[in-house]
Design a binder for these strands. Sequence first.
DNA 1: TGGGTCATGTAACCTGTTACATGATTAG
DNA 2: CTAATCATGTAACAGGTTACATGACCCA
Lengths: 181, 181
Amino acid sequence: MSLKFGLLGLLHYGSMSGYELDKIFKDSLNFFWQANRSQIYRELNKMEDEGWLTAKIVFQTEKPNKKLYTITDEGRKGFEKWLSADCIDDALFTRNILLLKLFFSGDREHKDNIKMLEKFQERCEKELLDIQETCRNRCDNSKDEIYWDITADYGEYYYNMCIDWARDSINKLKKSNIQKR
Amino acid sequence: MSLKFGLLGLLHYGSMSGYELDKIFKDSLNFFWQANRSQIYRELNKMEDEGWLTAKIVFQTEKPNKKLYTITDEGRKGFEKWLSADCIDDALFTRNILLLKLFFSGDREHKDNIKMLEKFQERCEKELLDIQETCRNRCDNSKDEIYWDITADYGEYYYNMCIDWARDSINKLKKSNIQKR
DNA sequence: TGGGTCATGTAACCTGTTACATGATTAG
DNA sequence: CTAATCATGTAACAGGTTACATGACCCA
């Protein structure tokens, strides 16, 4: 349901084709929402049917023709309704495959699980740098900026938390190894 | 793909019906993995077809009959293979509807967005208490305990992080309100 | 005596992922 | 010259959600 609104939000900035939407989506929203092209095209078709978007075919010579989508008034209305709707319950549901595995890892050797956690920690450190370097450059001084900032903050808080947790968990496991001797 | 292994993991502890699995799932894994009954039944049927589970119908008088599932050697093998497979890439993908909304909230009034964040913060505080009270009681002194503990830790770290982030974001927004005058 | 919950499940639908198709252009 | 990438999309399948079905028992 939310992909739809992610697309509408981007089309708010200007008319785009599915392909262009896909790229911008990956550049700006990918940290907290992922979508692939097929899904984007399907949603666009659906929204066109519903009258939330209008499409205009743009003929191109060097590239395949493209369908340029524009948001309608109805689309804008729907988008704003979504924005102001309550979403706290949905916001709390997340799936975390690493935790799922760890929960069932009692029969595996501590050292293998420690390795997994170390790998996770390293990866989070890398992602943290990534956010700090790339997301912080999208300064445009508009009313949007403070909100983009807040979402980037979340990324930093999140990865820092993951790094702390991984480090502390590794230590817990190592300590319990020593006690077993 | 992972629900399958969540179910196998639980069936590791003993044979169960779909209904029982659903309840245990909700009690133990729900924080980091959600599934609903229909999906559970479908996965169970599929795994039976694949030979990862065997089923035995148990006749009951006061309740509807149930299908009791037991994990096979093949199921165990598949489960262990999954456990040791790398999952770091998957672990980093999460969808967060609150961030998606905030990203597009520049046109809304600050005070409405602040309200949303306050609501989120309160909810996280409640969830945090919940984890501290319920998850910490599942002490069984087995080799599994330390891993259950680590997953509960994650919950605490996570909600604490969310609370910090919400508080700081609210302050950021309030400060920028003052500057606008 | 009517609505909730226990206990079991199925069917239909919506969302997300993977694989494929096409034709041009660029890099090695 | 071959492989990757750009630029557009479609089709098929797998995973997740919502709604419904059934019959007992319990509570007010």
